[in-house]
Design a binder for these strands. Structure first.
Length: 215
DNA sequence: ACATTAAGTGATT
DNA sequence: AATCACTTAATGT
């Protein structure tokens, strides 16, 4: 029994605290460290492990037919990837790409245990359902923001989101990358960022953005 | 000093 | 809000 894993899971995933489940997890899960920008799940790939986030931030994004990307959401410690759960159970290729936003630590659970644990452990089942539920809600918000919100609001939301996920107010990022994430164009992002700077809500520099007051 | 890349701008759709 | 064509500024070699 790997106590390191057990401790981390108890701390971050209270839903998974059943004794036998905890033992099962610590026996079969593998801790892995990934550095920033590592691609964890590629679109079209078949996923064989379920990652639970222990430390860091994972960015989940979608891509359209032309290869334009669209940022969906961040995964933080204490969360698992709903898409992965989904794909694993249905044995379908991934519809999303997941990349490490920061240096992160994951607990990888082999998919083979999915079925068994779903039946065997109430806590695991609850965790899976909760994960689905959380993401579903999140996705609805994302849809709202694409369908109904203006770019400026989406940008502010994106910045806030990123700040919350990475727990920092200064990020190293280019306007172009934000444009990719939001499926917009660099000029539009630059102009909107400029406005925010004029309002004193952020501070701009080459390759970095500092958040001042994003209410 | 020069090339490269990020960011700013005005005009057009 | 996106795209184009161009300028300006910062950075690496």
């Amino acid at each position: 029994m790997n106590t390191e894993i057990a401790e981390k899971v108890t701390g971050l995933f209270p839903a998974l605290c059943e004794k036998e489940l905890l033992e099962d997890i610590s026996r079969n899960g593998k801790l892995m460290e990934v550095s920033a920008n590592t691609v964890l799940v590629e679109i079209g790939s078949y996923v064989k492990v379920i990652p639970l986030v222990i430390k860091g931030t994972i960015k989940v994004l979608r891509e359209d037919d032309d290869g334009n990307e669209l940022f969906l959401y961040f995964l933080n410690p204490g969360q698992g990837c709903a898409m992965t759960l989904n794909c694993c159970m249905a044995n379908k290729p991934s519809a999303i790409r997941a990349i490490a936003e920061d240096d992160s630590e994951l607990l990888a659970i082999p998919v083979d245990y999915m079925d068994k644990w779903m039946k065997q452990y109430q806590g695991w089942k609850n965790f899976v359902l909760q994960t689905y539920s959380d993401r579903f809600e999140e996705l609805l918000h994302t849809i709202d923001s694409i369908a109904f919100m203006q770019m400026d609001e989406r940008l502010v939301k994106y910045l806030k989101n990123k700040a919350a996920a990475t727990k920092t107010r200064v990020f190293k990022i280019t306007h172009q990358q934000i444009a990719y994430d939001l499926n917009s164009s660099r000029e539009v992002i630059s102009r909107l960022l400029k406005q925010l700077e004029k309002l004193g809500r952020i501070k701009l520099g080459r390759n970095h953005i500092e958040l001042i007051s994003l209410v």
